[in-house]
Design a protein around this nucleic acid. Structure first.
Length: 502
RNA sequence: GGUCGGGUGGCCGAGCGGUUAGGCAGAGGUCUGCAAAACCUUGUACGGCGGUUCGAAUCCGCUCCCGACCUCCA
């Protein structure tokens, strides 16, 4: 059964491969988390939403997943430089006259809140770089012992030239040719002269006097290089070689490339079998950039407080918008695209409510509808198995939306599908939307209502029905329009009137 | 400049050798007191130029644009 096999695009091989865990049913997945020195970027949110769906789907199809996502709270230097620049967190701490830990604590909380807002599941473990200084020092020592690093003035550098000579690993992940890597010069960086070669990178950095974050090590009082934490923490929690390593495509080089080198250098093993890279979020067809104003924050999306959008978009609308594209493609955020996503999101949520309220009656009178619906349901999983293709799976789900609404309108008799198919439909549809995609039904009115709202609405709907019965159109329209004015939309259907918050 | 990845209808976005993707918007219809919602029907595509093939959006070559990384921005 082809459709039963999960295939994943492996960045390492640039091919879709059948996913075979090292120790089924267990799966180890490591995803590079945020550097907590500022509010989380909406593009970063996309990455974590993508991996949330991947995590949810792996669990849904029965794997026992250990999902590790780190918090980078030290070592990530300005400009992704590996030395000579200021640590992102230390810089922020200095600016705001706070302890580095205050900075990272604040933004870690903010990050968690945002992940919660987007209804993503917590990873199994969320280790911090500062909590693993000892292990990082040990790994530096291991790399030194294996001859792939050298010490200069208290800093330790990874010897890329020697590493490249000893195997053909370096450059493979990012698709770079060794010659190109080695011909690059970055003269503008300080401490460049400490390196034997421009492509070498720091794994331990000696702190200068003013540096706020510093630890004792055999080489100097200093701090670990940015790439090291991921090598260390993935190894510690998932083993030398594990199943999946993920992150944004912007991390491919140098971060992931150097991570791979470190793992080989320390453990003589490749860290991950499968690499998954999620693509960038654009806005209005261009890269988001703070400096030229082509930029929006998650909060601005939720409040509508931005010149780039005409209205507020809720977290689930934004999430749904993201799901309509494949994680491996760039996605272009725009007001029109969000508007379309909002309509689509509401339509599918409404269909789910309709579906759950349908009641199967009468004897089965099966026809083609049964097989069509079976095929659509099955298709969702065929698509998800094809490298987590959420846009295609969603297309199948919209096929089901069509069927569901036809049941509601009586265009298709419910008993033209079997009772079993119907029950499966109710189950699968909800499971896909909520368990796999991790959506929430924000339009659901029962959440904050305590029953009174529903009863009040029933009363109002009844009063309007009476008015309509008396052909008192002025009254019935007044009710409808007034409700619309306070954000309640009435929907007249064959089976009576329902309402939603608009 | 180097290395990767893209250019699909009004918009977003799947597909990647032969099938309606899907959502939104548009047009016509059904329903409705009128609307909205829902349902039915429906138009508009594959950057350009060559080539391979019975057949190409899908493969190859050239070309033009765009994006990512290499350099502050996830």
């Amino acid at each position: 059964m082809e459709s039963k096999q999960l295939k994943i695009h492996n960045s390492l091989t640039r091919q879709k491969e059948v996913f075979k865990p090292i120790n089924p049913p267990f799966v180890g997945m490591y995803v590079c988390g945020p550097t907590v020195y500022s509010d989380v970027h909406i593009g970063n949110v996309r990455t974590f939403v993508s991996f949330d769906i991947i995590y949810r789907y792996l669990k849904y199809i029965g794997y026992k997943v250990r999902y590790v996502r780190n918090i980078t709270d030290v070592g990530h230097l300005e400009g992704d430089a590996d030395i000579g620049a200021e640590d992102k967190i230390a810089k922020k701490a200095r600016l705001e006259q706070l302890e580095p830990m205050e900075i990272t604590h604040r933004y870690t909380l903010g990050f968690h809140e945002m992940m919660n807002t987007f209804n993503t599941l917590s990873p199994s473990i969320e280790p911090r770089a500062t909590g693993h200084i000892m292990e990082q020092i040990e790994m530096v020592q291991d790399i030194l012992d294996n001859g792939f690093a050298y010490v200069k003035n208290g800093s330790v550098y990874f010897n890329t030239v020697k590493f490249a000579e000893s195997n053909d690993v370096y450059g493979k992940l990012s698709g770079r040719k060794i010659e190109d890597l080695f011909s690059e010069t970055r003269d503008d960086l300080k401490h460049q002269d400490e390196k034997n070669h421009p492509s070498d990178f720091a794994i331990w950095i000696k702190a200068d006097e003013n540096h706020l974050m510093r630890w004792n090590s055999p080489w100097s009082v200093g701090f670990p290089g940015w790439h090291l934490e991921c090598s260390v923490m993935s190894t510690k929690y998932l083993g030398k070689t594990f199943d999946i390593h993920g992150g944004g495509s912007d991390l491919k080089f140098p971060h992931h490339e150097n991570e791979v080198a470190q793992n080989h250098g320390a453990c003589n093993a490749a860290p991950a079998k499968v690499w998954i890279h999620t693509n960038m979020l654009l806005m209005n067809g261009r890269k988001m950039s703070k400096s030229d104003g082509n930029h929006i924050t998650p909060v601005e999306l939720f409040t509508g407080d931005s010149t780039h959008i005409t209205k507020a978009y809720s977290p689930m609308i934004v999430k749904f918008f993201m799901m309509q594209a494949h994680y491996g493609s760039t996605l272009d955020l725009s007001d029109a695209a969000l508007l379309a996503a909002e309509k689509g999101y509401r339509k599918i949520m409404e269909a789910n409510r309709t579906l759950q309220q349908l009641v199967y009656e009468g004897a089965e009178a099966l026809n083609d509808e049964d097989t069509e619906i079976q095929a659509l349901m099955n298709g969702i999983f065929v698509d998800m198995n094809d490298d987590f293709n959420t846009p295609q799976a969603l297309a199948k789900a919209f096929g089901l939306v069509n069927k569901i609404n036809s049941f509601k309108d009586g265009h298709i008799a419910l008993n033209s599908i079997s009772r079993r198919t119907f029950e499966k439909l109710q189950y699968i549809f909800t499971a896909f939307l909520f368990d796999i995609c991790g959506l929430k039904d924000e339009t659901l009115n029962s959440e904050e209502s305590n029953g009174i709202t529903d009863e009040l609405m029933q009363l109002i709907i009844e009063l309007r029905q009476n008015a309509r019965g008396n052909k008192d159109w002025a009254m019935s329209d007044k009710i409808r329009d007034s409700l619309a004015g306070i954000g309640v939309q009435l929907k007249d259907g064959k089976e009576g009137t329902t309402w939603i918050k608009s």
